[in-house]
């Protein structure tokens, strides 16, 4: 039976900005998995709600889903680590992240003060060459490390209360140790699948709660 209409009627509430939601514009590749987990854990520990494009239900075109996410999220993070030539296939760089950053900047310019975006990079000073029009933007450099991502998140959301990086790392390790089981439960190897992302966010939230509780005791 076709449930699409029922599903869409249930989920299409008016576009409201979630003040704690963060759209993660990141590469979905195997090597990025640790940093993907770091983003989820770091944001959950700062009481923020991460979102990725695959986490949005519905069969609409991907760009439409992304545009809706940008509008719903108060913040976005654009990781431009993959501007280098890919070692696989035709060796092309990934343009998705800059494209979605462009969409976000347009939205943020149109809706002044309703959206704040941050750029993350793995290499210092590369942004000046790859995307020189972003001159004046200070990216947070994570050097391709989990600690770098967690530290970068603290810098980006400096106005939010955030635990120290070692505490975040503690929660990160809990989540990391649950990844295999989460994938098995979901019956997939794809860590970026919507169901896995949702479950990882919950595990991160629980890890965050338990880690911070331990700190307070």
């Amino acid at each position: 039976m076709d449930l699409r209409k029922a599903e869409s009627s249930a989920k299409l509430s008016p576009l409201r900005v979630n003040p704690n939601a963060v759209f993660l514009n990141i590469p979905y590749d195997e090597d990025f998995r640790p940093l993907y987990l770091a983003y989820i854990v770091g944001l959950c520990m700062m009481d923020m709600k991460p979102w990725i494009a695959s986490g949005v239900p519905g069969g609409r075109r991907r760009l439409s889903r992304i545009l809706e996410l940008i509008q719903r999220c108060r913040y976005s993070i654009h990781d431009l680590s993959r501007v280098e030539l890919s070692p696989f296939g035709l060796g092309t760089p990934r343009f998705n992240m800059p494209l979605e950053l462009g969409m976000t900047i347009t939205w943020a310019e149109l809706k002044e003060k309703s959206h704040t975006w941050f750029v993350m990079e793995s290499a210092p000073r590369r942004l000046d060459q790859s995307t020189s029009d972003l001159g004046g933007t200070d990216p947070n450099i994570h050097f391709g490390t989990v600690e770098g991502v967690l530290s970068g998140l603290r810098s980006a959301f400096v106005h939010k209360s955030s635990p120290p990086v070692p505490k975040m790392l503690q929660a990160y390790r809990i989540v990391e140790s649950n990844v295999q089981k989460t994938l098995e439960d979901a019956g997939t190897h794809d860590i970026y699948a919507a169901s896995v992302f949702k479950e990882l966010c919950f595990v991160a939230l629980r890890a965050s709660q338990l880690t911070l509780l331990e700190e307070n005791q």
């Binding site: 599903e7 709600k49 986490g55 169901s195 949702k198």
Partner: peptide, 11 residues
């Protein structure tokens, strides 16, 4: 179950 899963962002 699928419709519920699509409608909320928690497990």
């Amino acid at each position: 179950l699928d419709a519920i899963d699509s409608a909320v962002d928690v497990p």
